[in-house]
């Protein structure tokens, strides 16, 4: 169906973006293909070794209501439980958030920091793309006509690792991030040294941004305010925000530093258990 109709066809998952866009005339959709009947697209599978596979159409609430997933991937729950309202979370999917490819998508920095991969199927076969390479611009991604995102896979969390996501919004609920960030850190067995780290930030560039330099600033260094400040500076240096109705360039630069610091501290706390 997707291959036959090309650009006129869209995959329907939770519909919280697509149905609205189509009805408000912001997107020309001749054919919607509901993929929620495909088991692979709605799976939530935690393997024995701790790796996780989430169907692209699996709803946010299905994810945060799964106790095992919530325990193993708390950063994913941070994201899934603040996208929209309870009503939106009952339908909206992580895969949809990713395919919408908004620069401020609240699940995307988390997927990047957790090292997730996108599993894509199309007429030419299947391919796998790291999440940090999926988005190519505002509302743009690597999907070709006829292709669909089927699922997202996460490696098992390393021993002594922890991750956390936060966003800044001027309200308590229901808003689009001015800046968001996720940090995923692995510590030495004694919990005193960073041994690996992945940090991603959102709403400060045309796409959610993976910042390898911020992670590199932590690795091999002791867990301290001074080390964490270096990672924050690296993240701020990578951000290229704009001024718009939600925030200014200066505010966003400042917030990158604040949120990267907070998420690293929270991740360290979770890593130490």
């Amino acid at each position: 169906m997707l291959a036959k109709h090309g650009a006129a066809a869209r995959v329907l998952a939770g519909g919280t973006d697509l149905i609205i866009q189509a009805r408000e005339g912001r997107r020309d959709v001749a054919v919607m293909v509901d993929v929620k009947g495909i088991a692979e697209a709605t799976q939530l599978s935690l393997a024995g070794d701790g790796a996780l596979r989430i169907g692209a159409a699996t709803s946010c609430s299905a994810i945060y209501h799964n106790k095992d997933v919530a325990k193993a991937f708390p950063a994913l729950i941070d994201s899934a439980s603040l996208i929209g309202s309870v009503q939106i979370q009952a339908r909206a999917s992580i895969g949809g958030n990713l395919c919408n490819s908004g620069p401020a998508g609240d699940s995307i920095p988390t997927l990047i920091a957790l090292g997730a991969a996108c599993h894509i199927a199309g007429p030419a076969g299947e391919r796998t793309v790291p999440v940090e390479e999926f988005c190519t611009g505002p509302s743009r991604n690597v999907l070709q006509n006829g292709e669909m995102l089927v699922s997202i896979s996460f490696p098992a969390p390393a021993a002594h690792s922890g991750a956390a996501f936060e966003r800044f919004i001027p309200r308590n609920e229901m808003d689009i991030a001015v800046v968001n960030a996720c940090s995923n850190v692995t510590l030495s067995a004694d919990g005193q040294t960073f041994t690996a780290a992945r940090i991603a930030i959102g709403a400060v560039a045309p796409t959610p941004l993976y910042v390898p330099a911020a992670g590199a600033a932590l690795v091999g260094q002791p867990v301290s305010d001074a080390t964490i400040a270096k990672a924050c500076e690296a993240a701020q240096a990578a951000a290229t925000p704009i001024t718009d109705m939600r925030g200014s360039v200066e505010q966003r630069h400042h917030l990158v530093g604040v949120l990267v610091r907070r998420t690293i501290n929270k991740a360290v706390k979770r890593a130490r258990g």
């Binding site: 329907l12 939770g14 519909g15 919280t16 149905i19 609205i20 919607m32 509901d34 929620k36 709803s59 609430s61 309870v86 009503q87 939106i88 009952a90 339908r91």
Partner: peptide, 18 residues
């Protein structure tokens, strides 16, 4: 708002056929 299959949803964001 309606409850559909045990979940609270916005019925304006659900297609009738769903």
């Amino acid at each position: 708002n309606v409850v559909m299959n045990g979940q609270l949803v916005n019925s304006c964001c659900v297609l009738g056929v769903e």
